[in-house]
Every structure is written in C-alpha cells, then in structure tokens.
Simulated scan of single mutants.
Amino acid sequence: MPEHEQDGQEREFDLRWADDAEHKEPSARARMLAARWKHDPPGPVPFRPDPEHGRPRRRASRSPWISTAVVLGSVAALIVLLGYINFRPPY
C-alpha cells in the first residue's frame, strides 16, 4: 500500500479514535472561563430583558411613511437629474 494512502487511513483512524473517546478535554476558552468563574462567578443574566430596555424608542411625531417618502423622493429626483443631464443639447 502506498505511503500517502496509509497516512490517510491512519489519520481517519485517529479521528474516529478521538471522537469515540470517553473523556473529552474542554477547549482552552472553556478552561479559561472555568478558572475565572471559580474565583469570580458571573452574575445572573435574565432570559428576557426588561420591557423598557428591550424596545426600540420611536418618536411619536415621526411616521415610518415619512422616511419612505423621503427615500423615494430622493430616488425620483436623482432619476430626473440624470435624465436632464443626458438630454441636454451639446454646446
């Protein structure tokens, strides 16, 4: 059997062996957090934020239609301006 095929089979065997291991070592980040939290545990984190902190604030006087009208008006003005520039008679 050629050497590169044997290396591939050995690597596949090693991966299967590692995946089937009974004890898996935690990642470096998990070990770091465990060590940090051992001396300084994190505070409780609520599942859902408070209602006043979770909602985006809107201005009562501004409607979402105003933003849409401004964007569409700007696009229309740009189209008219480009059309005017293209249809000007040359000097």
Rank of each mutant, 00 (worst) to 15 (best):
I79D: 00
H53Q: 12
E5I: 14
R29T: 07
P44G: 09
V80K: 00
Y91N: 01
Y91T: 03
H39L: 12
V75F: 09
P89C: 03
I79Y: 01
S74L: 13
M32D: 10
R88K: 04
I85Q: 05
P42W: 02
E12D: 09
P64D: 12
H4R: 14
I79T: 11
P41E: 07
E25H: 09
A18S: 12
D14K: 03
G83Y: 02
R29D: 14
R57T: 02
T68R: 08
A30F: 06
P42A: 10
A76T: 10
A69Q: 06
V71D: 03
A21V: 01
A77Q: 00
N86K: 01
S74R: 01
P42Q: 09
A35I: 01
F87M: 01
E25Y: 06
F47I: 08
R29C: 08
E3I: 14
P56S: 12
W37A: 04
A35E: 14
A35D: 13
R11P: 04
M1S: 14
S74Y: 10
W17N: 06
Y91S: 06
R11L: 10
D20T: 07
I79Q: 02
P89R: 07
E3N: 15
W37G: 01
M32V: 04
L72A: 13
E10M: 07
D14Y: 04
G54Y: 01
A34C: 02
G8P: 01
P46V: 03
S27F: 05
R58K: 12
D19Q: 06
W17C: 08
M1P: 05
P42G: 10
P26A: 02
Q6D: 13
H53F: 07
A18H: 00
H53V: 11
A21S: 05
P46E: 05
S27R: 05
P49I: 07
D40C: 10
D20L: 10
L72W: 09
D50A: 15
V70I: 13
L81Y: 13
S27K: 00
D7L: 15
V80N: 00
G43E: 11
V71G: 00
R29I: 03
K38Q: 08
E10P: 00
F47T: 03
A34N: 11
L78F: 11
E25W: 08
L72N: 09
E52I: 12
Y84N: 03
E12N: 05
A28G: 03
W37D: 07
K38N: 09
R11W: 04
N86F: 02
R16C: 10
A76V: 08
